[in-house]
Structure formats: C-alpha cells, structure tokens
C-alpha cells in the first residue's frame, strides 16, 4: 500500500465543518469541558513510584542543589505562594534579579512544553535547566553528583528509588519530575460546582463563568479543567522581551509570545504576567479589555472586549472560585550529611 493514513480518516473539505462557536454553547455545555481528570499522567519512561517521588521531594527542597548551596527549587517555587514566589520577577544566583516572573509548577503533569518560552519539552529536561543555569541556581551538574554521593542518606534514597542505578543526573531529573507531577491543585469551589453543588459558588461567580466563556473570550486560551491550552501568544504587553520569538525566530506569531499559564489558584499568584507587571486581577482584565500593543505578532484573539465594571467584578468573583483547599505541604527532613561523621567519631571513641 503506497500511502497509509493512521487515525481518524482525513476529511476532504473544510466546507463540511461548522464549528460550534463560543456564543452558541449553553452554560451546561461549557461546564462539561471543565471536569477534573481522575488521575495524574506519568510518562512511560519515568513511571510513578512512591520512592522516586519521596526522593524528588527531598531534592526539590534541598538548597545544596545550587552552586552556592542556599537556593532550592522550593526557594522560588514556594508552596505558600501557590508554588511561585509572589514576586514580579524572581531572584537567582547572587541575588540577581531575573527577567521573568517565576511560573507556578501547579499541574505541570499535564504540560508538554515548559517554561515561558517552551525551551524544554519535558519535566525531566526542565528540572535540570534552572539548576544548571548560571543566573539561577548556578550548579555544575557533574559536581552535584559528587556532592550528593558524599551524603550517605542520598546514596540510600537513590538506591531505593533507582535500584542498581544509584545517583546520576538523569535519575535526579527523573525524581524531581516525578515529584513535580504530584503537585496538583486540590478541589476548588469551582470543581464542586462543576460536580453539581449549585451552592458552591456565588451567582456573581456564575455570571463570571458565562463571561469567561463568552464575551470576555478567556477560554480561547485558558481552556479546560486546568485553565490553559498550553498555547503561546503575544498578548500585547509593552515590554521588550521577545519570548518564544527567540526560540522560533522565523515565526512572526512567536515574537513576544509566552506560554498561557494555568489559572488554578490564580488569586494567590500575583503580580501577574510573564514580567510581573500587573499588580492584580483587575489590572489583568483591564489589559485584555483594551487588547494590548498593536504589532504584527499580536494574537488574533486579542480584541477589545468592552466589558463593564460590573462584568469585570463578576469575572474576578469567578476566578476566585479556582482557589483550591490544599492541605499544608510539610517540608521534608533533608539528609544532613554530617551525622555520619559524628557517628564515626563515636565509634572511634
């Protein structure tokens, strides 16, 4: 057979399609698109194990993963700030201010391209990026292996998580990625409403949901249960950062384009946008209402919305229903690495 087409058969002509526009869907039809998934996806080449997640959690909060031994992944991705840092833009090695806002790591198990500009295609890749970046954690990866091997408890943790393999950079990345996939926003009032509890959210929030999917057109990008389609857009912010345009310079639409973030727990994650330039959710909605800087790369989804003040408030009420009732995150007890020295001295005595 000369040609083989896999999957759904190719449809011959576009004219046969009549997509249902946002305006034509009922509230119940929209609600059906926001049902939470029942399980967390893990890749086949890095399946979940309790031991791997435990090791990943320990590494995530260990500042010795940085060159200066005082910055952990959790320094910037702080669970108390919805797994961000609450700052306009982060601080890296030597307290140097970084150029972009620290993104949350919530719900990354469902993402494929990572970072604001997609520079990494898996969480395993991404886990090593900030550790090795000289402006972030500034850690030589080979030296990190040596440092971890000198800590007996880490040798044990790695051997349990990766039998017959032990400490390696690849396994460190797998462990952190596995842990990060467990960082999932818990059930929010919005989810209870989707599940059928009509009293879970206010009438203002319900009106906000209608606006979100209708007039305000937020769902063009912030769609689905995780409130993102992982797309990249230039939304017209007036800064010089070229975003994904530096990764795909030949594609005009990627100039000033950044990844669409989840809106889960969004009210806890200000200030907003890739540059942290907007202080609160009203400022964000006002930006979209006005549609941003006109330039060739500006997303076609950016159009004046003509929202009233009351509609903006309803949208904010709705966004607040996405804040989940998360359990406190207990910090792991890190391998001390020095206790064995004391033990050895006692044995020598």
């Amino acid at each position: 057979m000369k040609k083989l087409i896999l999957g759904v058969a190719v449809t011959a002509i576009a004219a046969s399609f009549s997509p249902v526009s946002a305006a034509e869907k009922s509230r119940d039809e929209w609600k059906a698109e926001y049902v939470r998934p029942s399980s967390v996806p893990h890749p086949a080449d890095n399946p979940y194990t309790v031991e791997k997640a435990k090791l990943g959690e320990t590494l995530f909060f260990d500042p010795r993963l940085s060159g200066a031994n005082h910055i952990s992944c959790g320094t910037c991705h702080n669970p108390s700030f919805a797994w961000g840092d609450g700052l306009p833009t982060g601080f890296g090695h030597g307290m140097v201010r970084l150029g972009r806002k620290t993104p949350t790591i919530l719900n990354l198990a469902w993402s494929e391209l990572l970072m604001w500009d997609d520079r990494f295609e898996s969480l395993e890749e991404q886990a090593l990026g900030p550790i090795a970046a000289d402006v972030e954690m500034n850690q030589d990866l080979d030296e990190l292996v040596t440092e971890l091997q000198a800590i007996p408890e880490y040798r044990t943790l790695f051997n349990v998580a990766f039998p017959n393999e032990g400490i390696s950079i690849e396994n460190l990345a797998k462990a952190i990625a596995t842990y990060e996939r467990t960082v999932v926003s818990a059930v929010a009032p919005f989810d209870s409403w989707i599940a059928g509890d009509e009293l879970a959210i206010s009438e203002a929030a319900k009106r906000g949901f209608d606006l979100y999917n209708g007039k305000a057109n937020c769902t063009a990008c912030h769609s689905g249960w995780n409130f993102t389609d992982d797309s990249f857009h230039d939304i017209g912010l007036p800064d010089d950062d070229n975003g994904r345009g530096d990764i795909l310079p030949e594609i005009e639409a990627m100039a000033h384009a950044f990844k669409t973030p989840t809106l889960r727990n969004v009210e806890l994650r200000g200030p907003y946008m890739h540059d942290g330039s907007l202080a609160d959710l009203l400022a964000v909605i006002n930006h979209y209402d006005e549609d941003g800087v006109k330039r060739p790369s500006l997303s076609s989804d950016m159009k004046p919305l003509n929202l009233t003040q009351a509609e903006k408030i309803d949208l904010i009420f709705f966004l607040a229903t996405l804040t989940s009732r998360d359990d406190p995150v207990p910090l792991p007890v890190l391998p001390n690495g020095k206790s064995m020295v004391v033990t050895k001295l006692k044995v020598q005595e």
């Binding site: 000369k2 040609k3 083989l4 087409i5 896999l6 999957g7 759904v8 058969a9 190719v10 449809t11 002509i13 576009a14 399609f17 997509p19 526009s21 946002a22 063009a220 795909l248 030949e250 594609i251 639409a253 990627m254 997303s299 076609s300 989804d301």
Partner: peptide, 26 residues
C-alpha cells in the same frame, strides 16, 4: 484530525483551518 500520515515523495498536504482559532503550522 489525524495524528500520523504516510506519503510518497512529491505528495502534498493541504492544511485547512476549520477551527475558531488562528493557527501557524510549521
């Protein structure tokens, strides 16, 4: 509408946007 396709050298694909959204195939 499909995930994979096999072609012969010289064959073409016409990408048709039947969506509500702008796309950029590359």
């Amino acid at each position: 509408d499909i995930k994979e396709i096999s072609l012969a050298v010289g064959d073409s694909i016409t990408f048709t946007n039947a969506d509500e959204y702008t796309h950029n195939i590359y």
